[in-house]
Structure formats: C-alpha cells, structure tokens
Design a protein around this nucleic acid. Sequence first.
DNA 1: CGTCTATTTGAATGTACTCAAAAGCGGTGG
DNA 2: CCACCGCTTTTGAGTACATTCAAATAGACG
Lengths: 193, 193
Amino acid sequence: MSLEKITENFRRHTAVTERDIELFTELSKSKSLGKNEMLIEQDQPGAALTLIVSGCLMTFYSDKDCDPHVMQFGREMWWTGDLQAFVENTPSLYSIKALVDSEVAMLEKEKFDQLCREAPAFERYFRILFQKSLVSHQKRIIRNISNTAEEKYEQFLKSHPGLELTVPQKHIASYLGITPEFLSKIRKKRVGK
Amino acid sequence: MSLEKITENFRRHTAVTERDIELFTELSKSKSLGKNEMLIEQDQPGAALTLIVSGCLMTFYSDKDCDPHVMQFGREMWWTGDLQAFVENTPSLYSIKALVDSEVAMLEKEKFDQLCREAPAFERYFRILFQKSLVSHQKRIIRNISNTAEEKYEQFLKSHPGLELTVPQKHIASYLGITPEFLSKIRKKRVGK
DNA sequence: CGTCTATTTGAATGTACTCAAAAGCGGTGG
DNA sequence: CCACCGCTTTTGAGTACATTCAAATAGACG
C-alpha cells in the first residue's frame, strides 16, 4: 500500500514515529485523479499542500494573455501546491493538473498547522523540505539567467530523466521559458544525441 | 542596538522568548564588513547562514567563463548564504560581497542545528522563513520565464525600491539575466519615467 | 588631476519569437 | 480496421529582442 511509500519518504528526511504517521493520515485527504483532471484551478480557493503518492502533476500559471507557463512537474513523492495561496488562504495563483492517472494526499492549512503543532517532527520535516526545495529553486534561477535555451533543455533532460517521453513537448518548452517551435528546432539539432 | 532589530524581526515571524534570543546571540558570530569586502569566496568552505543586520550584500556565482551572475541582493534583516553548501557542508557555490559597509550575524551549521534542537521556536522560525523565501523564488522564476527584459526591470524596481540608486547597474543587469549594455538601452527608453 | 571602472552609444550579429502551413499522431466512431 | 477529427510537432520565412564588440563619455576615488 502507499502508506509504506509515504512513511519511507518521511523517514528519509527526519525521524517520525508511528504516531506521527497516523496523525498525518488522519489529517490528510487522499484523492485520485484521472489523466488531465484538475487538482485545482487558478483563482479558486482551497489551495492545499499536496503530496504526490503516484503519477505526475503539472503546476502552471496563465498570464493576462492566457498563455500558460509551467512552474513545476511534480512526480512521485514530490510535494506540490501553491505555497503562497496555502499560507495566506487566498485564491490559488496556479492551476494544477494530472498528466497521468495519479494519487495524492492533500493537507489543508488548518490541518497542516495542527500537524506541525502536535508533531514537532513534522515542523522539522517541513523545515528541511522547504530548505531543499529552496536550493533547487536557486539552481533553477541560476540556470535561467545564465544558460541558453539549448543548455537549459540539456539540464532539463538530466534533472527530469524520462519525462520528455511522457509529457507533451509544449509543456517542457513552457517550463524552460521558450516557444514549442524553438524547442522543436533545438531537438532537431541534437539528433546525434 | 542591533539586538532589538533582530528580536523584532524574529517576533514578526514566530513567538520567541528572551531565552531563545540569548541562545541565538550566543551561537551566532557578529562580523563587520567594509564596502566591497567578501563575506565568503566561491569554492571556499565555511558557508554559514547569515543574517544581515545592516547594510547590503550581494550573492553571485561565477560561471566557467568567469562571468558573474547575481543571485540575490540582501538587505537589512534578510538572510543570505549558500544554503546548499551550508546544509551539506561543502564548498560554497557562490561568493558573497558587501556592497556597502555592513554588519552581519553568522550561524554555522552545528550552531544552527543546536539552535533548532534546543529552541523549537527556531525550528518553526526557519520553517516559516524558508516557506516565505520559497514563495518569492517561485515568483522570480515565473517572471524569468514569462517576462521580457523590460518588464523584468520594472518588476525589479518595484521589489527592490531604491536599490537602483545604490548598486552598480551591471549588477542589476546580471540579476535580471541581461547584459549591462541592454539595460542601459532599456533605461534610456523609459526616461519619461 | 589622472587612472580606473562604469555607463552610454552605435553597428553588426545571433538567438529566439511569430505566424502560417504542412505533417504526424492518437483517439473515436462508423 | 480504417477514416476522420483535433491536437501536437515540425518546418520555413520574416521579424524582434537581446547580445557582442568597439569606441566614446561619464563618474568615482586616491
């Protein structure tokens, strides 16, 4: 069952007891999503911190011209959700959609606060989680400001192995901040691998 | 004195006691930096989580061609430091330099761990701090992938008011991921404010 | 005042985008 | 099982955004 996967994931970051895990399962809500189903729509309330138990979800933002920009591809045992909307209890800035059939565990704000209050191990877990996430966000920013589109695509292939086979190319282009047409041309150039 | 500023800053995020603050001052090391003095050099060990008590520091990364890329401008009551090097106790990926005379409080890894262990309020403080930082990093990524250079500069002016008067333009260009020449041209275009 | 660095300016170039059209691909229904 | 529809990807031509390089100008500091 998926509970083992979750437990194992928590334990990789910090020491959690059986009781802590129990509390987590009590407070979180499981949800199944079919391919292309939305977890949350932009501008809607109800942002939750969401653990992807299986599958793959995409977080994206639609700008004033309704062009979507992909923020994140979330895979198994990654967390997703609009953190700002979650913290401030405001409408979500992003939409989140399942790219394949997926299972998630959602944690609402009050439950999250309760979890951190009653199980200090989770306070610690999330501190470490955010800390790691911050590191990878910093790296992504460095890449954004210092690499060409081609280099960014190479980096993407390394950091998200296999994802280019699953998700539509236009979404990867959006994640990298380039047009799908240009990504197509980059891919053509690097045919000999 | 600066201790009040620090206390006030901690209290804005979470409830800390007198004792917690005392522990922080015991465990952290104060340091003064003159203008252009380096807090840490890229590839050197000793990364510390650093609270900027006064002044302004710049975090940057030099790529293989030795071109510097600015990651962050840190101002009063902001934290700075290479989080990855800090967590993993590895050489720093970035250099950090004082742009004006500055005062900082540095927290080494072991002291940080001790602080979180002995004062759970700090575990919570850092969880919240990283959480907020993550939100602003996400926004920066969105801007990087969806805005033109001109829009990015406008955003920068809003989010770092007054900084364009203090720090050399080439550093701002680097922060935005554009060339100094092009920033100069952008600025020329928007003379009528 | 002279030196050093930062900023501006301009011309030529390159990288990435827009638009339009064609080709490919996957799902659905007959 | 094939034909068709809608969506994604490819291709190409023309364009815009941003860079490079070089030179001139402006500012900062001893």
